[in-house]
Amino acid sequence: MLELHDITAGYDRRNPVFTRAALSVAPGESVGLLGPSGCGKSTLARVAALLHRPDAGRVSLDGTEVRAWRHRAPRALRTTVGVVFQQPRMSADPRLRLRDLIVEPLRAAGRRTGIPARLAELAPAVGLTDDLLARRPHEVSDGQLQRACLARALVLRPRLLVCDEMTGMLDASTTAALVTAVEAYRAETGASLLAVGHDRLLLERWCDRTVDWSDCLTPAGGGSPTS
């Protein structure tokens, strides 16, 4: 499903955040990526979601080699991956009501007819009531906003879900609800999951397989650490 080979990425070419990282996620598999903060796992997640162009390395999604990132990537390839970020406050446009926030990708894709049906399907799945859907981001809690962000990531039915510290700022019950929603979606569609985080206990219980960040980085000449 997702193959990352020898990825070198960072925000300054002379000083990359990490060099030669590799990771692969099989179709339908869930992989947890564990690492300390600041090690570059979020950057790797952004590369996997086609949001950050790596300085070197190969990325392939569904067997298609990725050659363009961000806006240059074809829309169909971009929307293959759904992303949930760590901070719901920062990843929600403060001007949109939760309802509009969730269906925004459908509007961007021009699929306006399916909006009410998809919303009626998703809102209960992530635990959002009609009352909450009519509010703006500053009127809901972090947990409720993150539920909306998860719904937005799922609205286009991505085949790979990237959760970048999705539950890092949330309490245990919201964490459980979000993980349940993700797992229900995966059971229904067979999507793959790349969960990035530092909570070993959570990721080991949630994912089929966990990878430590140090195992992702290949020493020079080494092969890919994942099967």
Binding site: R46, A49, L50, L51, R70, H71, R75, R78, T79, V81, G82, V83, F85, Q87, M90, S91, A92, D93, E104, P105, A108, A109, C149, R152, A153, V155, L156
Partner: peptide
Amino acid sequence: RPYIDAAVSGGASRWRVTVR
């Protein structure tokens, strides 16, 4: 901001990101 990233990932074009 991450919400722009989220919009890009949701398939929004440059024009849409700018205008919306």
